[in-house]
Amino acid sequence: MAVLDWEVIQQYLPLYQEAAWLTVRLGVAGIIFAILIGLICAIVQYFKVPALRQIAAVYIEISRNTPLLVQLFFIFYGLPKIGIPTNATVCGIAGLAFLGGSYMAEAFRSGLEAIPAIQTESALSLGLSRAQTMRYVILPQAASISVPPFIANVIFLLKETSVFSAISLMDLMFTAKDLIGLYYKTTECLFLLVVFYLLILLPISILGSLLERRLRHAGFGA
């Protein structure tokens, strides 16, 4: 007897494709917002902007020290209670952005802070403005340092989308659980689940290592 029933797999494939597409869509949207939040927090902290900097620090601690599932429940059930109507899709994206923002902020901030102050000073002493110093001297160096943690965050956040099923978004996890509950084809369902997550994440992972190797080859430093 074959371990996997290929007919069942073929039958389920379209459902998984649709679910994978939802996972990717919500994941990408959430990550884009996470990048924006992360950039703002990192810049606010790097330039030590009063007040905003403390707000960013508090946000980062809350975001990093609570599970995504809890954050999603808060947004999904909490917001309507204070009169903000919401739906599952918006909640999923918002939840992912809320979680990811802090991780992205830390990735960007570590890149910025890794650049020694002397780089800024020597650029300023040459007559570059603050903005030019940032653009031509600090950001290119900081970006390359931030790439590995950035890629790791993207992968982490895409994996975290698997808790979206808790607010009834029909992502990969939801689809697998649903199908198992309906037809008990557990092996096939879980097999497809693993394959689809790998299909989404492996290319990013491989691309990330290639990029990292190139950056290491460029090997900044004294």
Binding site: P116, I118, S122, L126, V137, Q141, S144, F220, A222
Partner: peptide, 12 residues
């Protein structure tokens, strides 16, 4: 023009 003690060239 200023030249610093530590090498301050832009590594990138």
């Amino acid at each position: 023009g200023m030249v610093f003690q530590s090498y301050d060239l832009f590594p990138h």
